[in-house]
Computed example of a mutant assay.
Amino acid sequence: MLKLRQFDKSDINSIMLYLNDNEVTRYITDAIPQPYTESDARWWVENSESSSLTKAIEYKGELVGCISAKVGEFEYSCSAELGYWIGRQFWSNGIATEAVRVFTDMLFKYTDIVRLFVSVVSINGASIRVLEKNGYLYEGTLRKASCKNGQYFDEHLYSKISE
């Protein structure tokens, strides 16, 4: 039912739809432009096609979100920051939990990554539950770590270490 795959041009309209939903982008990076245009989606598809660390999340044959890992540099090159989002109409179906499980397992099995971490806005309970269900451990709180739309957010740092 769930599949992680490369993005392709047929995903452009869905990406635009999901990333123009304020509820989807509410707690994720401001690096995602608003409004999210067709040109933005086309750039994303073209630039993620060759990446093994950026995957489209497909559920029952339909694009529903994205999951990725950004590997650190130099002495942090065996660590990566995990990020993901799911289109709102697919929330509460266990899709994010399953995608994080599959992607985490894949990264630990097929790459040199030994530590995955996520900094998640402290009031984003749904994402925190996804991480905890997958064995990510709370490491601490980063106070006023981010500011979005003039509002400061504490962030919780979670990580998982390869066995």
Score class of each variant (00 low, 15 high):
Lys144Arg: 14
Ile128Val: 15
Glu73Leu: 06
Ser162Phe: 00
Thr97Trp: 09
Phe108Trp: 02
Gly125Thr: 08
Thr104Glu: 04
Arg129Ala: 13
Glu155Ala: 07
Val100Trp: 05
Ser122Asp: 15
Ile123Arg: 15
Ile67Glu: 08
Asp112Arg: 09
Lys60Ile: 00
Lys60Cys: 03
Lys160Tyr: 00
Thr54Ser: 10
Asn149Asp: 15
Gly87Val: 01
Leu142Gln: 12
Phe117His: 08
Leu142Ser: 05
Arg88Asn: 13
Gly65Leu: 09
Ile67Phe: 01
Tyr152Lys: 13
Thr54Lys: 11
Thr54Asp: 09
Glu132Met: 03
Ser51Pro: 03
Lys70Tyr: 07
Ala99Glu: 03
Ile161Arg: 02
Gly135Trp: 04
Tyr152Val: 05
Glu98Met: 07
Ile123Thr: 15
Asn149Ser: 15
Lys148Leu: 12
Lys70Arg: 13
Lys55Arg: 15
Glu75Pro: 12
Tyr110Asp: 14
Phe108Cys: 06
Val120Thr: 08
Gly94Val: 01
Tyr158Asp: 01
Leu157Thr: 04
Val114Ala: 04
His156Met: 10
Glu98Asn: 04
Ser77Asn: 15
Arg143Met: 11
Val71Asn: 05
Ala145His: 14
Trp85Pro: 11
Phe153Asp: 12
Val102Glu: 11
Tyr76Leu: 10
Leu137Tyr: 03
Ser92Tyr: 04
Leu53Phe: 10
Val64Gly: 03
Arg115Thr: 07
Trp85Leu: 13
Glu81Thr: 04
Met106Lys: 14
Leu131Gln: 01
Tyr76His: 13
Leu107Lys: 09
Tyr136Gly: 01
Val71Ser: 10
Cys66Arg: 14
Gln89Leu: 03
Val102Ser: 05
Val120Ser: 02
Leu82Arg: 01
Ala96Met: 14
Leu116Phe: 02
Lys144Val: 00
Gly94Ser: 04
Ala56Thr: 09
Gly150Met: 07
Tyr59Gly: 05
Ser79Cys: 15
Glu81Met: 02
Lys148His: 12
Gly140Met: 09
Asn149Tyr: 12
Leu116Thr: 04
Ser52Lys: 09
Ser50His: 14
Gly65Cys: 07
Phe153Tyr: 15
Leu116Ala: 08
Cys78Ile: 07
Thr141Ala: 03
Tyr84Gly: 05
Leu82Gly: 06
Glu163Ser: 15
Gly61Ile: 00
Val130Ser: 09
Gly135Phe: 06
Thr104Ile: 01
Lys70Met: 11
Val102Gly: 00
Cys78Leu: 11
Asp154Gln: 10
Glu62Thr: 02
Ser92Asp: 14
Val121Ala: 15
Ser92Asn: 14
